[in-house]
Write a protein that binds this DNA or RNA. Structure first.
Lengths: 169, 169
DNA sequence: AAAAATTATTTTAAGCTTAAAACAATAAAT
DNA sequence: ATTTATTGTTTTAAGCTTAAAATAATTTTT
């Protein structure tokens, strides 16, 4: 709409007239700063308090929601990380006794990953504290702030998805 | 304030009465999803289009704003990454001819990192496209959306900082 | 001025992460 | 039924990332 505010003749139109997207850029950088800041602190506390890494915690969080376990490829989609990444992560969590890896009975390619009893118990303890950390980190936001932010981030998520995947699918 | 809505007798008070912070948790996960989604796409396009990694791009973006270069430790603070991380990153950017590393004339401990002419030219090209990608990714947000989101993220950033550093300093 | 503390950077070890290639099993097409 | 394509996982190579320890120079304290 700004483009139409000032009438342009044919010559002026032909000249490269780059739109200014600094506002969107600042928005993106601020979003990134927020998540980096919070993620870094969560990572630090998880290590300090439970000697666990954030990726391990995230993986266990996914499995905690799936009592019957999850396929590695589903984990990959949910966590938005590569399959190869998960292979190593699961290796280490198997080694530490937090999860088990079994071959799917219906598909011999697929691996089903499941929390062990100990893994689940340990995760629940960590998750309890984690929830308080998050509440503390977002503590200055009012209920309305959180609501508004939630809505705007939902819209942002959809916008990004559309830009990434195209409107198709 | 919710705690005071229902009067509790001494006995009830003594029982563990955990507050529910699932709302904040969902907010955090949504924020993280947004930044992971966008960051992943930017990373993918930088590689595809310019064969460059996001950390390299970020480092050059900082240097582009500092014509006289920056100290490694300042870079570290700005980018919110460890010093050790930067040492390797700078190594690789020196090897590819994008930046130069010089000892500070005023402090023999300090390294000043600067873009080369080629590095700056290449960065400017990439930054131009990058700005369009971001605009596209946030394309479904209205001007008001962007404004509101900007404000809420500013508040979130302050809230997180307070929680991390404490009110002091 | 010498000792102690701080600041700036690098090194190290371990783990995280990705993209791309390889492998293996299932599903679809002929 | 065989070929072809797809799907699920692992491996590989390179790079990113951190925390902690080590090194070196500056600043502060005594």
């Amino acid at each position: 709409m700004d483009d139409q505010a000032i009438p342009l003749d044919a010559e002026t139109k032909a000249v490269e007239m780059p739109e200014d997207h600094r506002e969107e850029l600042r928005l993106w950088l601020r979003l990134l700063t927020c998540s980096t800041l919070i993620e870094g602190e969560v990572r630090r506390r998880l290590r300090e308090r439970f000697d666990v890494t954030l990726p391990r915690f995230d993986l266990m969080a996914q499995l905690d929601k799936a009592p019957d376990g999850m396929m590695l490829s589903d984990l990959s989609k949910r966590m938005m990380v590569s399959n190869g990444n998960l292979t190593g992560l699961v290796d280490r969590l198997v080694a530490s006794g937090h999860v088990v890896r079994t071959v799917s009975p219906t598909d011999r390619r697929a691996m089903v990953i499941r929390l062990t009893e100990e893994g689940r118990a340990e995760f629940r303890t960590m998750a309890g504290e984690h929830e308080h950390w998050i509440a503390e980190l977002f503590g200055d936001l009012t209920g309305k702030d959180r609501n508004d932010l939630m809505r705007l981030l939902a819209k942002t998520k959809l916008s990004a998805r559309r830009a990434i995947m195209g409107d198709a699918q």
